[in-house]
Design a binder for these strands. Structure first.
Lengths: 222, 222
DNA sequence: GTCTATATCCGGATAGAC
DNA sequence: GTCTATCCGGATATAGAC
């Protein structure tokens, strides 16, 4: 903890982060094959050979990036504990995912492209991490249904619906902005969208316990 | 119309279709840059040079494919007339989109990747075709809201929600199948999903007029 | 640890025979 | 119209100087 050392692993860590951030941009814009190491190097402001020094190969860089993304993701979603209250848990789920779409759109996009292409590199992760996560949440939801706290809907597809709708605003950002005639999302836009999704989905699930916030959140936006 | 001619434009048309079908597969699996003309040629069972003969360049092939896709799409969605009845129009919209996801998943995937990467080649199409389409539908929905036929929700985001949820089953097919433990969709799966979406979204919009079909359509699926 | 220069390969495109 | 052989730019990866 003293300032004595000239270089700890800090420089190395800093360079890795710079490269990963640059790679994220490039992979989003051009896909895996379309991205050149030279472009990543230029954006990260390091010589091309250094990327090979740090990551060995382009594939390794891409996989490191995916792990980086999914690690951050799991952190956020882990503390989505199965609360007692259905409306509260679903609300937190939607809010959290919507915030992730806003703060980490590129992570969502890279993940989406990977899945669209058949998830050749993360099949394992889906089976080992996502599948158990979904099973856990759906069993909690099913118990709510059995107790009559929620309408009898398919919990798995409810999760798909929340994923689909929230990620849409990251992945299809270009289309959404074009159609709503904006240059980029503002925090109010995210609030409005979150309110809309909460309104439809909670109502759709038969969970109406916070109606006061919904009526104004869902009025059309100019 | 006699059989006299040795070759009409038929062979040419047939070859173009074969190449486009092969290109669709390859572009989905590997993205634009990741797809090689050789791989398309092999899949289409024609010599590589013939593709250049028919389409001149890889970019042209890709653009031709996008136009092919969007042409078919517009055809289907064009006859989504703004009915008098909100529930009926939204029902038909969801059913139609869900069927498209089932019958043309690759088209949806290529379109999704194009949008995710910033829609560099179809910006024009969005502004000229999709934007007017959305404006037309939202103005109809707004009139329903003004007449009190529908809860006051944002029509634009309702369209986004329907796009997001239906396309999710095409684009994220790999993930959905992994989590639901299936090898591919069966027609019953599509019916079940359609029923689920209709249930949540119609209820969320406050349109409850066909409740009889919904209760059984939304029971959880094993 | 860092970077320049280079080896090696691959893919898009075309020339030209049939 | 069809296909073989080839050109050439460009990308990954590495060797080796500093």
């Amino acid at each position: 903890m003293t300032t004595r050392k000239y270089k700890t692993g800090k420089i190395r860590e800093r360079n890795r982060e710079k490269i990963l951030a640059a790679a994220e941009q490039e992979f989003v814009l051009h896909g895996f094959k379309g991205t050149t190491m030279q472009a990543v190097a230029d954006r990260a402001e390091v010589p091309k050979a250094n990327i090979h020094y740090y990551f060995k190969s382009k594939s390794n860089l891409y996989i490191a990036l995916l792990e980086h993304i999914m690690g951050a993701w799991n952190e956020v979603l882990a503390d989505l504990s199965a609360d007692d209250d259905p409306a509260e848990m679903i609300t937190r789920f939607i809010r959290t995912k919507m915030q992730l779409s806003y703060t980490h759109p590129n992570a969502s996009k890279i993940f989406a492209m990977e899945i669209i292409q058949g998830a050749p590199r993360i099949r394992g992760h889906m089976a080992e991490v996502m599948l158990p996560w979904v099973k856990e949440k759906t069993s909690v939801m099913q118990s709510w249904i059995d107790q009559g706290k929620m309408r009898p809907i398919d919990p798995t597809h409810l999760i798909f619906m929340i994923w689909a709708t929230t990620q849409h605003y990251a992945d299809f950002e270009t289309q959404v902005l074009e159609i709503t005639n904006k240059r980029q999302y503002a925090p109010e836009d995210i609030d409005h969208i979150t309110g809309f999704l909460l309104d439809i989905i909670l109502t759709g699930c038969g969970l109406e316990n916070n109606r006061r916030t919904r009526s104004e959140a869902s009025t059309p936006q100019v």
